[in-house]
């Protein structure tokens, strides 16, 4: 009985490990697209909460939204991931005037 458990677990593990090598789809680019969507949502959410807290004004909110969406689309095409520009921009905007 115990031997059976051991063997079945081992087999399950091995199958689980080699499974990815049999899935040939390139999902990297797809993911990039969907991650970008998620990020857009997050950015919006982020900005909304800043707006609610009163750290940014309505005008700044719209301005930032445009700017950030543009950056997101550049990010997908260029794949440059050095530092995150979004935080930088939010930071500088926030510090401009309160």
């Amino acid at each position: 009985m115990n031997l059976f458990i051991l063997i079945s677990i081992s087999i399950a593990c091995v199958v689980f490990l080699i499974f990815p090598f049999y899935r040939k789809t390139e999902f990297r680019n797809d993911n990039q697209q969907s991650y970008s969507e998620i990020r857009k949502e997050k950015v919006l959410f982020e900005l909304t909460s800043e707006l609610e807290n009163g750290t940014i004004t309505n005008g700044q909110f719209n301005e930032l939204k445009e700017e950030l969406f543009k950056i997101e689309s550049i990010r997908i095409s260029s794949n440059n991931e050095e530092i995150d520009p979004i935080e930088e921009i939010i930071k500088t905007k926030k510090n401009q005037d309160v």
Binding site: F16, I18, P20
Partner: peptide, 13 residues
């Protein structure tokens, strides 16, 4: 990414 995914599966296991 396939090797990465396989390593991730190992971590799940």
């Amino acid at each position: 990414s396939q090797i990465k995914l396989s390593a991730k599966n190992a971590a799940y296991c």
